[in-house]
Amino acid sequence: MYRASMIRKELVAASAEPLILSLLSKGESYGYAIIQEVKERSGGKLQWTDGMLYPVLHRMERRGLLKSRWGESETGRKRKYYSIKKDGKTAMVKHHEQWSLIHSVLAGLKKEQYV
């Protein structure tokens, strides 16, 4: 799904679901905008092979984490908008807890190296 120039693909892969959930927790969005926002927020270091996002979104929808609706852009173009569901919010909280834990462990270890 991704071409990550600096971040290992396994890590990028593992972060896909929490990133999507977190982005959608701010409000509904569509595939292209999700990709652009991830690219922008990562300073271009997290670049997804765009087409591979959609199977992920569809799978998350199937799992009851997201819901979708077809709408129209300002220019009248068809777009599929995704939004987060209650189960998705629960999953996001769990992701945040887990990623925070990993981050704190890593940060602690790093700190010890410089003491």
Partner: peptide, 18 residues
């Protein structure tokens, strides 16, 4: 090119519906 290779996308879609 940015969309990606058709075969890979198809392979991912086929994994849906667990």
């Amino acid at each position: 090119k940015q969309i990606g290779k058709v075969g890979k996308i198809k392979a991912e879609f086929s994994k849906i519906a667990p």
